[in-house]
Design a protein around this nucleic acid. Structure first.
Lengths: 215, 215, 215, 215
DNA sequence: CCGTAAGCGAGACGGTACGTCGAGTCTTGGG
DNA sequence: CCCAAGACTCGACGTACCGTCTCGCTTACGG
């Protein structure tokens, strides 16, 4: 039986090699600026194009949606931020292993709390998270490119701890990570209570108690 | 220092006593139907009005936004659902206290998992959660009317457990609840891994281990 | 054969004897005020009702349209104006017959010019004329109640002149009136050239020359 | 003293060279069709756009109001009608000069009468005249583009007659034209009495008698 | 080295929905 | 049963953006 699917859209992917880097950057800058100035909802593709001094088609040529633009812009921002911090551009930093699991986790969780409270990151992250809740495709890309890499740092640190006997050998690292990160995100998303370093510490303490090696 | 806020629009609140109950119900029904049929993004106020056989103005008169309509509609749905289940209309049911804390929590957490997987609830809840992330006002109403009451059931059950000596007396019930619910929401929101009863059980086990009375 | 016309609207004419005179006056005042303040197009029935402190239904009960309200209001204004001028309220004044036809006509035509240039009368008259062009029913009422009575004064004066031998006995008084009044209205309606006393005089002179008794 | 007028909106006139001729024609056709089918008042910009298969914005981009659209549509209609009649498109035809002034004027005045009675022209002309009474801007455009060119034909013919000694040398051609055309328009606008060829003839006769060279 | 086929800025286009306004109808409560 | 008040349905308004579609114009490549 032949495939009768009506050629789901060839779409003629444009030639990426001739793409204008200048426009790409201008679009990212405009998108981030507009989102933090006016909020995601009031940001429009038309507005981004105008602010970037770019034709609308140049956006539609390379991205399928406003959210996709913002995701890439935000990713780019992260990369630039990390490059500014540490010399190289490997895109992130492993959780250090000082031997003190609790201390290591607290350090990183506190950093996460700080980032969540940083207004520069807040607007785009909220927007992307919100869009991802509702749009599975974007949600997948969001999870995959922003969230999951973060979680993997935790996973690896906990696996190391398991190796070192700092947590019960039966520990599921994935679940452990979610125990740490889930409550944090919950507060952030629903704004139920303030996100503080003390809260991060308390989380780590409780979770590690649950994971302690059985006597 | 005088208040220079530019008189945020009096808006002449309409007379609620003359409100048409028939229209209100029709709007709720239409909103819920459209959201589950076509998704929140493709649902429009115009569409709701048309489906409900109602003038747009009647919607704009009573609600500030599409999200607000849906929130009320969903609340109404919950109330009706609960009224249908148990005779009275007190809007919810306390977590039973059988004496076995783990079993009680697992039962409820499994129910939550089931609800999160129920397509009828999923579409509106995702939409409202997403909107709430980005719109603080709506987020506050969402949290207050939908989320917080649920959390309070857990809080009370854990307080009872503390009283009974089933958990460490230093336990912060609020944090305990977030340890249970945060990871669940995290998976649901980001669709990282499937939500199963087994996951709910594992959560309860780990959290309770962390809360166990110190010997 | 029975009349199958579908009962073109019973409409149950309300009981005029119980009508509130106070409301009627308030509506007229509001209508005239709003039209001269904001123009006819921006005047709304809702606005008239609000300004008059009257329910909308009270307007809809007694008039079929905004234009009809304004027509009655304007009629009422004329009556009051005339009552103020001469003691009685017969609604108008015959053209005086001094024996000098040209002088008599010039006097009245100049008065007409003055009225057309009077801003108080201009706004409502233009509005009603415009509405009458397009709405035959209203046009008929406009012509009948406002225009035709004016024209009849001229008709009678010219008939008197014919009797007196001041114009050709074959003269059609109706046509004569239109020769006088038509050009005036033409300038007023289309704003082609200014309306002056000199123009009125010139009109009278030319028309009377055409009507002079054949030697 | 500086001009404090609040910058009356630049409005960024669109680029006329990129305008879609196809849309322009479709809009004209739709506007004329709707006005003659349903009347001017019941014709809406939305309706025109829908009928023309055009976005509303395309109308709002090029015209300020429904009346302006109709005026252009009507102008276009006239041009096309004249092009169809005589080969060239000079937009109109001079009044012929056969030497017999009365006959020439009667011919043209009868044609005007016919046009005023032609239902195809009646609806739009009435609508535009009405709108022009009330809206000075549109009235000016109406007068300038539709009315005045017509009047100029008469003016020129009468000037020629003055040259030829057929009318008094002191004759003001403008006033003469208004004496002819004013009464005609008066009847048409107020629908007082029917417009007939006989009436046109009578008008010409009376007016020319008034203009006859003084012995 | 020179066409020619991209990508590009610009922005008009056909659409959809917005949020507002007013029309005309209906209902409620007061006199 | 008239009236003030105002909520209701309906439909048009004029605006904002959507995503698509030409336009010329650069700008790099491939014959």
């Amino acid at each position: 039986m032949p495939d009768l699917t009506p050629e789901p859209v060839p779409k003629a992917v444009p030639d990426a090699s001739r793409r204008s880097e200048r426009s790409r950057r201008a679009i990212f800058d405009a998108a981030l600026a507009l989102v933090s100035e006016s909020g995601y909802a009031r940001t429009t593709i038309e507005g981004i194009a105008a602010r970037a001094g770019v034709g609308k088609q140049t956006i539609y040529r390379w991205w399928p949606s406003k959210a996709a633009v913002l995701l890439d812009a935000f990713l780019d921002l992260q990369v630039r931020a990390h490059e500014a911090m540490d010399g190289d551009g490997d895109g992130g930093s492993e959780i250090p292993d000082t031997g003190d699991l609790a201390a290591d986790l607290k350090r990183v969780l506190r950093a996460t709390v700080d980032e969540m409270n940083d207004p520069v990151f807040e607007a785009p992250t909220r927007a992307l998270a919100a869009e991802g809740i509702v749009d599975p495709d974007l949600g997948a890309r969001f999870t995959e490119t922003l969230l999951e890499p973060q979680l993997q740092y935790y996973v690896r640190r906990i696996e190391a701890a398991r190796e070192a006997g700092d947590v019960d050998p039966g520990t599921d690292p994935r679940l452990a990570v979610e125990l740490l990160v889930g409550p944090l995100h919950h507060r952030w998303i629903h704004r139920t209570l303030p996100l503080t370093h003390a809260y991060a510490d308390a989380l780590v303490d409780h979770v590690l108690r649950g994971l302690a090696p059985r006597s």
